[in-house]
Computed example of a mutant assay.
Amino acid sequence: MDKIICRLVVFLGCVLGLWGMLAMDCQAAPSHELETFHYKTHTIDGRKWLRIEIGMSRDKLDFEVAENPEKPYQLLILMKNTKRGDVKENIGLDRKIARYMTLKKTNKNDLQVMVAVDTSLEQHEYKVYTLEADKKSRKPYRLIIDIAADPPKPKEKPKQTDIPADEIIKEVRGRTIAIDAGHGGSDSGAIGPSFLKEKDVTLKIALEAARILRGNGARVVMTRYEDVDVYGPLATDKDELQARVDVARRDPSVEIFVSIHCNAFTNPEANGTGTYFHYHSGRDSMLAQHIQNEMVRATGLRDRGIHSARFYVLRHSRIPATLVETAFITNPNEERMLASASCQHAMALAICRGIGSYFRNISS
């Protein structure tokens, strides 16, 4: 009898142990956990912004963004498979752009972030996105919530009447293209012997390229329209470059990414135009080659060819991407070209023609 009782006890212990293990599996900790929280206000191009940064325990966060239809001042972000960790449940914010933020579980595994703005979300531009970890600056993978003190700027309408007939590029009609004017704001880029700044040249060429593309029926997404940092003040190099990539990532209709730069070297005799790509598919090098061909044809500069490179904006773009080194700003002759409005127009037009040639090639 004692043996039977012992066997029953052992059996029940095994069953209960197995049940406990299954219960633990069912209640396993979410794969994401909030580790840090920080917010700051800053000014970009005269506009005040509130930035909320939530540090995560790991990357690849799945989240959804919505506005509360019953309370139009509430921005809701549902973070899938996430727990709050040591971050407070209720957090006061700047009280001018946003009043407070609350964190609460919606079910066993999901966490809802609610940000209450001062008036209504209709009166604020906002962006919600993630940033990769930056080991150099000791920043983890982050969820970013940017909220402006004012509504979005009205979208610029494409001008269809200001493009001369010799600039018609029918292949770009209906396409969506991201144009990145290299450097900007606190980052001047390279500076020529006559003190011409790369950030000023790239912006002028980028704006001219956008004008030509829009005039031909394309939709253009710009990383910057003015002399500003894309990420904002006090950004690390990685934050700034990732912000440029994110401009294109946030718009699923963007088909290609073109970054515009000026080359530089310690030897002032270095010269020519070159284009770079990072191999994701054959389309990256194809885009680079078509733009390079048109740049050489339009400028008559030395053909430095196309090259594979590990530039951040190329490596992290999920669409065909290229970086154009228009000319050497450190070369006195090429610096004069880059300062010329007619040359800036010729380079912008060459980039647009290269884009058109690329789309014609992939459509054939």
Rank of each mutant, 00 (worst) to 15 (best):
G232W: 09
A235F: 07
T236L: 11
K238D: 07
K238W: 08
Q242V: 01
R244N: 03
V245R: 01
V247I: 12
V247M: 01
R249N: 10
D251V: 05
D251W: 00
F257V: 06
F257C: 03
F257P: 04
S259A: 12
S259C: 09
S259V: 06
I260G: 03
I260E: 06
I260P: 04
H261P: 05
H261C: 02
H261S: 01
C262E: 08
N263T: 02
A264E: 11
T266K: 10
T266Q: 07
A270C: 11
G272T: 04
G272P: 09
G272S: 04
T273E: 07
T273G: 09
G274S: 14
T275Y: 04
T275R: 02
Y276E: 09
Y276R: 08
F277I: 03
H278F: 15
H278T: 10
Y279G: 04
H280F: 01
S281Q: 11
G282C: 08
D284V: 07
M286K: 09
M286R: 07
Q289A: 07
N293S: 14
N293R: 13
M295E: 15
M295Y: 07
A298H: 13
T299Q: 06
T299G: 03
G300P: 12
G300M: 05
R302P: 09
D303R: 13
G305K: 08
I306A: 03
I306M: 03
H307P: 02
R310E: 13
V313H: 08
V313R: 05
S317Q: 10
P320F: 08
A321H: 13
V324G: 03
T326N: 14
I329F: 07
N331L: 06
P332I: 02
N333V: 12
E335A: 02
R336E: 13
R336H: 05
M337N: 13
L338W: 09
A339L: 00
S340K: 00
A341Y: 00
A341P: 12
A341H: 00
A341C: 00
